[in-house]
Design a protein around this nucleic acid. Structure first.
Lengths: 146, 146
DNA sequence: GATTAGTCCTTAACACATTAATTATTGCGA
DNA sequence: TCGCAATAATTAATGTGTTAAGGACTAATC
């Protein structure tokens, strides 16, 4: 009596499908980032800071979808590159505030046109309706807020 | 005159949405894998080998969505654990063939029930129709075959 | 059959992901 | 105020992702 529980074929596996879709999407983006000298995660951090302004690292980690230990290194790297500042919260010295510098903003703006062109390309390739639908479906799978 | 090219809000960014969806999906799966002693990628390799049988590493890497250097390390690790075998192709000694062992198969079967329960859970939470639709949309974004 | 190019795989180097342990600071209660 | 739990951040350890370079073998060309 072998159990023979039917695992889904790897070809229709949701985790693998998500992985492969992300590979496909990141391809052109990685090309763009190559000549910025920063990584995909560093770009995400800058984007979030530019959109929402200075914030504490906990909020930053959530918005950029990064774990704390990763953010520690990334913030330090971006600081060394002069793209962000790190300051202690005077009220609670455990907390750290991060903000994008003028140089960081300049880096984003220098590539904003290409980045939005790439994003628009994917939107167009799926069609606006299916694209929005996809984003909604993906949001349903995201981890619940805590 | 600031340029003000409209980058999509990070909240509606496709790469970030894919990342967060994957986090959500991997949560329960990671829990399951914790007591197997193997990683998510190692599990993927075993799954592919169990589904398709022995194959060369190039094919294996494609089916498991892994880059070659990663697969080199992962196959070596799985070999040490006694979960796969690695043999040279006698016809072309550059090539390597990988196969799952009985022990590897046993590991999969020991967790197949829980794995398929998790997969079914996601399918149910979205509804079968939207679930299939999601897989189709994701497939459209995957890298083109070469 | 020696040179050359191409293919398969490995190694190296650096950055990130994940989990766990550690440090620094704050807040609370005996 | 002393200790102790809770929170914010860092460090450590292991494994993977990515790019580039290297090594081994094969195939093509002359």
């Amino acid at each position: 009596m072998t159990q023979q529980t039917s695992l889904p074929s790897t070809a229709r596996s949701l985790p693998i499908a998500l992985l492969r879709a992300r590979e496909g999407v990141m391809g052109p983006i990685r090309e763009m980032l190559t000549d910025t000298g920063i990584t995909e995660q560093q770009w995400r951090v800058l984007r979030v800071l530019e959109e929402f302004g200075e914030m504490d690292t906990k909020t930053l980690a959530q918005r950029a979808s990064l774990l704390f230990p990763s953010l520690t290194r990334i913030a330090a790297t971006l600081n060394e590159k002069g793209l962000v500042t790190q300051t202690r919260d005077t009220g609670d010295r455990r907390r750290q505030l991060v903000a994008v510098t003028a140089e960081g903003r300049a880096l984003i703006e220098a590539h904003a046109a290409e980045a939005s062109r790439i994003a628009a390309g994917f939107r167009e390739s799926l069609g606006a309706e299916r694209y929005e639908e996809l984003l909604d479906l993906l949001a349903l799978l995201a981890p619940k807020e805590r």
